[in-house]
Design a protein around this nucleic acid. Structure first.
Lengths: 243, 243
DNA sequence: CAGTGGTCTAGACCACGCT
DNA sequence: GCGTGGTCTAGACCACTGA
């Protein structure tokens, strides 16, 4: 029967937006019951399957909770926060209400250290781009980040301006490598003299060492990053869900 | 038209299982194209919508990847690992190939500290069950864990045997509180004299402090846990996915 | 162009929760 | 019993990809 709509946006996405707006404006409060699927279907003149499509996505995002025989309810706000999202440093800081900044300390092509080779699946004697950046939040040092990327694919980066452009944007727009997933490990560390100097903390200060391997949309390991975060200013937060 | 099936399992779940088995046995390899929705629909004698239901769930789980106009493909194994799953200490250790153990150090009812009150949304002068447990991996101390739960709902725990039964199982089976989600923060810490003694490390050793608020299936904050992990033996791992 | 996934319909019956 | 979500059908047209 087709759609027959005027707008370009699919029906189910429009319903999603409507419901999310109702929640954001408080017209639907956490714990409230959402109108039943049949009611929504009638109200917005779409089939129940289309309503279900919209609701299912909101349930998957944790915005709504379904209870068979009872209804569909607005989730508790605490839970529907970011679920272990892969974010860039800038996005992360903005989410915390801080103004992100950065300064490239060094940018060179080097032979891949063993750890980088094994993480990225490179053979021996492979060359990589090594980027060392200081990351700032509200102009204060927050982390020292060392990134490694295969020189074969990303060698051109040595000519790019990383002080004013996001690395992930460059990777995607200039090199066609879209970052989609990552494995990250987190462990405690102490500041040595160099780290202390860059981060503006005393030697021996508490740090958080984050090591991340990111994968592009084809599942190819693409980037290896080590970041040393100030333990006094940064705390890593994860949203977990039981499977 | 109904279902008319013999088995109790819904059709779309049966298809999911079939496909997952094909992937596990290697009959479908990472990167392989899965038969088209119309083909599967015919092969397994179900409507295309039902096939889509099964495929959509597998896509959400990261097992499959859809590409409009091209087909549906088996995902790369690297990416479809655990995505920031909420696990118990025991499950976590087992996943690492270690034998989990534990020892309750203290189990009492106390007035809720302010941090616990705010995290669990309790009013003042609220009493909570406080459980202090040493967590072992292969009989070696791995973490010291301090759990707080509302005494109103879980006061009976003081009579339960936490040395030999999982807390989450008790909460679910005896108290009807099913743990489904959590917010966890991670920061570096140092061992004081008490922590050092319990964990068998020297004073001043590096630790990872994990603080977790868990929610039950109704979205009610239920449990507040602080865990001090040995930094020399434990590293926290998260799988991240770009949204 | 043919084939793929993306969206959508207008029904149907089932399983569950509540009163 | 009645209303809720859960599953399922047999079609339809659209948007995209690749030969």
């Amino acid at each position: 029967m087709g759609n027959g709509s005027v707008s370009a946006l699919p029906l189910y996405l429009r319903l999603k937006e409507i419901l999310q707006e109702h929640i954001e404006t408080g017209r639907l409060q956490p714990g409230d019951r959402v109108p039943s699927e049949r009611e929504l279907s009638e109200q917005y003149d779409m089939s129940r399957m289309t309503v279900r499509h919209a609701l299912t996505e909101l349930v998957n995002e944790g915005v709504l909770v379904r209870q068979q025989g009872r209804g569909t309810f607005v989730g508790r706000p605490k839970i529907r926060q970011a679920l272990a999202g892969l974010t860039s440093f800038s996005e992360d800081m903005q989410a915390r209400g801080l103004r992100p900044g950065g300064k490239v300390l060094s940018l060179q092509i080097v032979q891949a250290p063993r750890k980088v080779r094994t993480s990225l699946g490179l053979d021996e004697s492979h060359w990589v781009v090594r980027i060392e950046r200081l990351r700032l939040a509200d102009d204060e040092p927050m982390a020292l980040e060392i990134t490694h990327l295969s020189a074969g694919r990303f060698g051109g980066l040595v000519h790019d301006d990383l002080n004013h452009t996001s690395l992930y944007r460059l990777m995607e727009e200039k090199y066609g490598a879209k970052v989609t997933a990552a494995t990250q490990s987190i462990e405690p560390a102490l500041a040595d003299a160099t780290l202390a100097r860059h981060l503006g903390v005393r030697e021996g200060a508490l740090l958080l060492l984050l090591e991340r391997v990111t994968y592009d949309s084809n599942g190819v390991p693409t980037e290896y990053v080590s970041s040393y975060y100030r333990g006094d200013r940064y705390r890593f937060i994860v949203e977990l869900q039981r499977r």
